[in-house]
Amino acid sequence: RTLPPCVITLHSGFLRLPDLLDGSQITERIFITFLSSCAVMQEHTVETAHGVLHVTVHGTGNARRPAILTFHDVGLESKSCFSTLFKFEEMQEIVKNFTVVHIDALGQEDGAAAYPAGYQYPSMDQLAETVPTVLQYFNFRTIIGVGVGAGAYILAKFAMCNPEAVEGLVLINIDAEARGWMDWAAHKVHLVICSVLICSSEEMSAGTELLQSHRERISKASHLPNMELFWKSYNNRRDLNIDRSNTFKCPVMLVVGDQAPHEDAAVECNSKLDPTTTSFLKMADAGGMPQLTQPSKLTEAFKYFIQGMGYMASSCMTRLSRSRTTSLSSSYSMEGSRSRSRTLSQSSQGGQMPPSPSHTMEVSC
């Protein structure tokens, strides 16, 4: 039978079914089949003890698998921080097998109303306390966390306080140490975010299109005061106090762009983690936002990481190659450019479990 007009929310936005099908009529069975093949997006508002969160959920995933939960960096929100990565063609193999949940930090979603003067924005610890509420709201038992910058810190804090809820962590541009040495006026926030948090020195000097687009977006944002509050909260963060005796209880992949502003901090964090459960991925030509500039390499590394956790064991890995480096924690390494090295799929033949991720990796392909 024919169905009334409806709206389906997809990754790319809102799509009217009659427009999609050019006005033709379809049966209910075909419609259900069509729905099942789509990555349906749902937007939610989740009330927490520290404020109301905007949360976006993609797909229904597999109830027996953890959800992939993301948390963005300062100056970004979930869409600008992660859409390039999660819309990437090769990432769809992962997306269709997991529920993907994007959290926008309080007041950071696109179009959010600016907080009034004098508003006390939550601390980083308090923002981490909002994550359990999201898990409870959606009835998620465990997650694989993917965080960038401030989001990486928040998910790291959450994982240390709730180890039973986290099966794996991908921490991009992590800085686990307290800083508290910058104080910037609100009208400078867009420059600070681009120059200190997001972009590498090469990107700043070159004035890349990516840099310009982020500057323009931040400077025109109606909730710029909220960004400043988030920045100040991150800048006033406490040291996570990570060491070999106080570390994560799950596999961790640290990611940073070569020559990125966060490179030294990520290296320092890597030195404090358990080398048998940690991999360190330093990406060449990635700048300060590898999830935006190198989605292909990051997707392949993420697939490898998930495979190492026992999920998607038969996943094809054909693009990412890893150059041989010397790691203080391990003598194991893999070599080279695409033309002269084994790929990740070749190094884990037949979908077998890959080697323990206790190595430094520099991606130069």
Score class of each variant (00 low, 15 high):
T2D: 10
G13E: 00
I26M: 13
I26G: 09
T27G: 14
F31Q: 05
T33I: 07
F34A: 06
C38D: 02
C38Y: 06
A39V: 08
V46W: 01
V46R: 04
V46I: 09
T48Q: 09
H50C: 06
H50N: 14
T56F: 06
L69Y: 04
G75Y: 00
G75I: 00
L76Y: 08
K87T: 13
I94E: 00
A114Y: 04
A117I: 09
L127Q: 09
T133C: 07
Y137H: 15
I143R: 00
V146S: 04
V148M: 06
C161E: 15
A165C: 15
A178W: 06
H187Q: 12
I198V: 15
I198W: 11
S200C: 02
E203I: 04
S205H: 10
G207Q: 03
E209K: 08
E209C: 00
E216W: 02
A221D: 03
P225L: 09
N226R: 02
N226T: 01
N226K: 06
M227T: 10
N236P: 00
F248A: 04
K249L: 09
M253T: 02
V255F: 00
E263W: 11
D264F: 13
E268Q: 15
S271I: 04
K272H: 13
D274I: 07
F280H: 08
L281V: 14
G287Q: 05
M289R: 00
L298A: 08
K303W: 08
Q307M: 14
Y311S: 03
Y311K: 10
M317R: 14
R322W: 15
S323W: 01
E335F: 08
E335W: 11
S337A: 15
R340V: 13
S341C: 00
S341F: 05
L344D: 06
L344F: 06
S348Q: 15
M361N: 10
V363C: 15
